[in-house]
Design a binder for these strands. Structure first.
Lengths: 210, 210
DNA sequence: GTGAAACGGAGGACAACGCTCCGTTTCAAG
DNA sequence: CTTGAAACGGAGCGTTGTCCTCCGTTTCAC
């Protein structure tokens, strides 16, 4: 593969990741190509259609996330600190901003994607479980709660703010959330969803009840 | 005004509020009419164009929010409880899901809208200030932090979940956030934006520096 | 009972986007 | 340096989806 071709491929993936996070899976492909600094034809040469591009972005993001989770577990003895470190890393990777945007534009059941999802989710779940066992994360805060709050915080706020400020605020609000997780706790109402419950929502045909 | 006409008008506003919250300001007007159970012509008879419809939705939401803030202040002696009650009410009103979606499709400087914004924000700010003074809200958590977290929590999560479950989860995550606000606190980094800072972001030409 | 007001939905005009084609440029091996 | 294969950019056509109007039909209220 020629050097310029590889560079363009990477720039396309980065541009697609950012734009999908900001504008959703339906973003104009011309815009992706332009942000990547290449012509539209180059995009179509690498990714035959929109779905292939989204697949590429998601696979990339999931793999990086899995690595971040494993690295966080390694580098921190304290289970809560490990979880916090992972959340900070995941925010920077934008994975939680990208995945939800493509949920209904991409078939996550397809083997390669499903495997990546599973591996990434499992690594995250280990961090949550460890924090539960160490009693440093309230028992009523589930995997789904943590994951969804990360999605809420990672999604760019709408409005005419500079992108950099948006990102700084996301970091700040993640810290606010992490701080809240550590404090004292009263009881929490509402659906306590486990990872299995989340999987069941995606595949209502499975053995678990709805 | 004929009785059916009034009913249709209310249904149009409700449908537009929900759909704008879910899909953004660019939602297809045919879809709004359909969800409201009326023909597209009826929508155009009430609102000559998209902008008029958005204005109607926003004015309605802001007014209800202001009332909710004032009512929360009245009904609760404890400042923190008043703030929490307001946040719960605002979530139900969907105001924080609607406003950000229309930020760049509507001119908020226009007198009638600006007045409503100002009144609503001022009522909310009073709740935040009171909680600060009562030392029940950490000093480094600003008006902007609370408002933006409410936006993050109120925005519907993407994905193929039933709407009702999404709403239940939003309530649950708001409780998680409120719980976190009350706990012990370490220091919080990042931009500490006041209401004035927020206003300056919207109107960079004002006296405040950027 | 009656007419004015409100209604629904088909359809033409228009804008935006997807994707292809082809002449031009860039790389790297001999 | 030469050369050809590979990669590139962007104009442009076809399609899709949305806006908004027009007009025959229905509903309300006096």
């Amino acid at each position: 593969m020629r050097a310029d071709a590889r560079r363009n491929l990477e720039q396309l993936l980065a541009a697609a990741r950012d734009l999908v996070a900001e504008k959703g899976a339906g973003v104009a492909l011309d815009e992706v190509a332009h942000r990547a600094g290449v012509g539209i034809a180059t995009l179509y040469r690498r990714f035959p259609d929109r779905s292939a591009l989204l697949r590429g972005v998601v696979l990339d993001a999931l793999e990086q996330t899995r690595l971040a989770a494993e690295q966080a577990a390694e580098e921190h003895d304290d289970a809560f600190e490990a979880l916090a470190a992972y959340l900070r890393a995941a925010l920077e990777l934008r994975v939680s901003a990208v995945i939800p945007q493509v949920l209904d534009a991409l078939d996550l059941d397809e083997p390669e994607l499903a495997t990546a999802c599973e591996a990434s989710a499992r690594a995250t779940e280990r961090l949550v479980d460890a924090a539960h066992e160490a009693d440093s994360l309230p028992a009523d805060v589930t995997f789904a709660d943590v994951g969804m709050m990360l999605v809420r915080i990672a999604r760019p706020l709408p409005g005419p703010m500079p992108e950099e400020l948006k990102h700084e605020l996301a970091r700040r609000h993640l810290e606010l959330f992490i701080r809240g997780l550590g404090g004292e706790h009263r009881s929490l109402d509402g659906p306590e969803l486990s990872r299995a419950d989340l999987a069941d929502l995606a595949h209502p045909g499975n053995t678990l009840s709805g």
